[in-house]
Design a protein around this nucleic acid. Structure first.
Length: 625
RNA sequence: GCCCCGGUGGCUUAGCGGUUAGAGCAGCGGCCUUGUAAGCCGCGGGUCGCGGGUUCAAAUCCCGCCCGGGGCUCCA
């Protein structure tokens, strides 16, 4: 139901003639009402008596606010293109009038089914004119907010939940024995019931600040973060790593604009699915929205490309810096859920379903390798696969093969009908210390957007065909990867372990601590020497005790701490404090070359970037704390 | 958007109607200077988020607003 609500000085209307046979009977005279709220009301398909009650309840609230108690319900079809049947509409309008009277409102109704003329005088205050969209369920009504068809449909989706085991057997989720699959149990509970309690700051938020990685930025919009040097380093290392993986997989790397014209015909339809979730940028007479993924840019590019079946599967990749989603303020959570985030997005055009499945398997493996490289093993995440009943019936072997590649039972969501543009979607989900799950890697098989965007390839016979499109993010949002690493470290700490980041991501890999000022020269020289070998090393030249320097290095999670004094200088054997070891074995005796070799070997298949902070600690500002 | 909680020096916080708002860390100045998680002394730094109100008196009580966090919802 749509209502144009006008707080008016007066309205005059006169029925001219009946437009439909079922029109109400009235006198053809002038009716005049003063000091009232006029409700131009349009009853839509799907509206019920309940909708009528809800509408009046909302109107009542408004009446109290503006201290008026008179309304006119004026049938007005022009607010919607999805009109209810006239008989149904009349019934609902009548009910609105009756219910309003019951609430003590002085309610009038203009006749239904008539062509009428009217004059109106609307008051000049800010609340005088309002547009309401009344929809039942969830109280999701907003002034002027149009709820799109697709979203309404989505609310009606029926999901069936299962656990699919690597051997191919599928059991309803309530019959599955979760013993030994604690994380999967939490993930399933999170997905299906979505209920949890706990009220505390997520551990990763405390860590991201304490480690001086990232922080909130009050001067921006919520969910837009500032990144300190160490955080920026980690983030760009992961970005680089993911990008190298995807390029090795064979994708073409491109770059596309971050903002698009709201009025562009190719985008309007897609965009309509997600009302009021965009940042809007006004530029002269244009309104642009900030992209929420790389889809548009890549699709528009592919639309204009000449593509042959020989090119397929055609992979195209972009690391969005950034993607924007204006999540509701209450939905934001540290690095887990942001309004601006960095997203690797790799699409693949495939000739047919056989090729799409083959490609999807490759990307599934790529995603596992990518997470593994970042420092998340299969123990750390759970697989969810979602698909339609029909797709399952036709492609059961393919679905089972994904689960068997994964090697652990997976959560399955099966839909009776297809509501989305894809027939299958899977994700890897990380479960954090507050038992919340969030998706990292994901891939989808999209059967709709090629046509929507006019993306075609030419097949063997010279005919234009629409390809299938796979949408994959092999790592998920980079910020979310960091969230997962921090949450994982905290989990380890909680169970008595030593928290740390993977060696290749540690901002400082080696810290040199001189025992006294007498060894400052040696310490500095050593730090420089290590740095020349593409290892991030620094040295502590502050006027503090050695003990304190070691303590601070440990609190920074530095993997190797080298103390240098007379003994090391004269023997050439270093005392290396290894964060990964415990107790007496923690300090290892080794030569500088051995240490360098060890680090280089462990990080050889990973990108390297220098830390953009001074090598001497006394020269570093403190960003937090 | 709704509900709950919070906002005191850069950070963590004490105070919750009654002296000039107190501490630790960090910063600055100095002392100390050889062995693996906090050496010592001193100094500077606070419109107690903002605006009203109650009161002889407000960081403290009340109202409104702003900002942040969490929960609900949501998550293309």
């Amino acid at each position: 139901m749509k209502i144009l609500q006008l707080h008016s000085n007066f309205i005059e209307y006169r029925p001219i003639e009946k437009e439909i046979s079922s029109a109400e009977d009235v006198d053809k005279r002038i009716y005049r009402l003063e000091d009232l709220v006029v409700l131009f009301t349009c009853v839509e398909k799907g509206d019920t008596i309940e909708t009528a009650y809800k509408a009046i309840d909302e109107v009542k609230e408004f009446l109290n606010k503006v201290k008026v108690n008179r309304i006119l319900i004026y049938p007005y079809a022009h607010l919607s293109s999805e009109l209810a049947e006239p008989s149904e509409a009349l019934k609902i309008l009548e009910e609105m009038g009756v219910y309003a009277s019951k609430l003590g409102i002085e309610a009038y109704r203009a006749p239904f089914g008539w062509c009428k003329e009217f004059s109106i005088s609307v008051k000049g205050h800010p609340l005088a004119e309002q547009f309401k969209s009344i929809v039942l369920g969830g109280g999701k009504t907003g002034k002027g907010e149009v709820i799109s068809k697709a979203l309404e449909a989505e609310e009606k989706i029926v999901s069936h939940w299962f656990i699919l085991k690597p051997d191919g057997s599928m059991v309803p989720v309530e019959e599955f024995d979760f013993a030994g699959h604690e994380n999967l149990r939490k993930f399933a509970a999170y997905e299906i019931s979505k209920s949890r309690a706990a009220q505390q700051t997520p551990p990763h938020v405390i860590l991201m600040r304490k480690l001086e990685l990232a922080d909130y930025e009050d001067a921006s919009d919520p969910g837009n973060f500032r990144w300190y040097p160490k955080g920026n380093l980690i983030k760009s290392l992961i970005e680089e790593f993911v990008t190298e993986k995807v390029i090795a997989y064979g994708a073409l790397k491109v770059e596309t604009p971050i903002m698009y014209d709201l009025e562009h015909p190719a985008l309007a339809n897609y965009l309509h699915r997600f009302p009021a979730r965009q940042y809007i940028v006004k530029s002269e007479d244009k309104e642009l929205f900030l992209r929420f993924s790389a889809c548009f840019g890549q699709f528009l590019m592919l639309h204009d490309a000449q593509i042959s079946y020989r090119h397929l599967p055609l992979k195209i990749y972009e690391l969005t810096h950034y993607s924007f989603r204006r999540e509701k303020s209450g939905e934001l959570a540290g690095l887990r859920r942001l309004r601006a985030f960095t997203m690797p997005d790799c699409h693949a055009l495939c000739a047919d379903m056989e090729q799409a499945k083959e490609e999807a398997i490759k990307r599934f493996k790529l995603s596992m390798e990518t997470l593994e490289g970042i420092g998340l093993t299969r123990e750390d995440y759970e697989l969810a696969i979602r698909f339609t009943k029909d797709f399952y019936a036709a492609n059961r072997d393919f679905i089972v093969s994904l689960v068997s590649l994964f090697g652990k039972p997976a959560l399955v969501e099966m839909w009776d009908e297809r509501f989305f543009y894809f027939v299958l979607k899977w994700e890897f989900n990380f479960v954090d210390n507050l038992d919340k799950a969030s998706a990292l890697s994901t891939d989808q098989i999209d059967i709709e957007n090629a046509e929507r965007y006019g993306i075609t390839y030419v097949d063997e016979k010279g005919e234009k065909k629409y390809p299938l499109i796979l949408h994959c993010s092999p790592s998920g949002a980079i910020e979310r990867d960091i969230y997962a690493l921090l949450e994982k470290a905290y989990k380890i700490q909680k169970t008595g372990g030593t928290p740390m980041l993977p060696l290749w991501l540690s901002p400082t890999q080696v810290r040199i601590v001189p025992v006294s000022e007498n060894f400052y020269n040696e310490a500095e020289k050593m730090a420089e020497e290590i740095s020349k070998r593409r290892i991030r090393a620094d040295w502590d030249d502050r006027p503090l005790t050695m003990q304190k320097k070691i303590r601070e290095a440990e609190m920074e999670w530095i993997p190797y701490i080298v103390v240098i004094g007379q003994e090391e200088v004269s023997t050439g054997m270093l005392a290396v404090r290894d964060r990964r070891l415990r107790g007496e074995r923690k300090i290892r005796r080794m030569r500088l070359e051995e240490l360098i070799d060890e680090i280089r070997k462990e990080t050889e298949d990973k990108p390297f970037k220098p830390l953009t902070l001074p090598m001497a600690l006394s020269k570093r500002p403190r960003f937090y704390g």
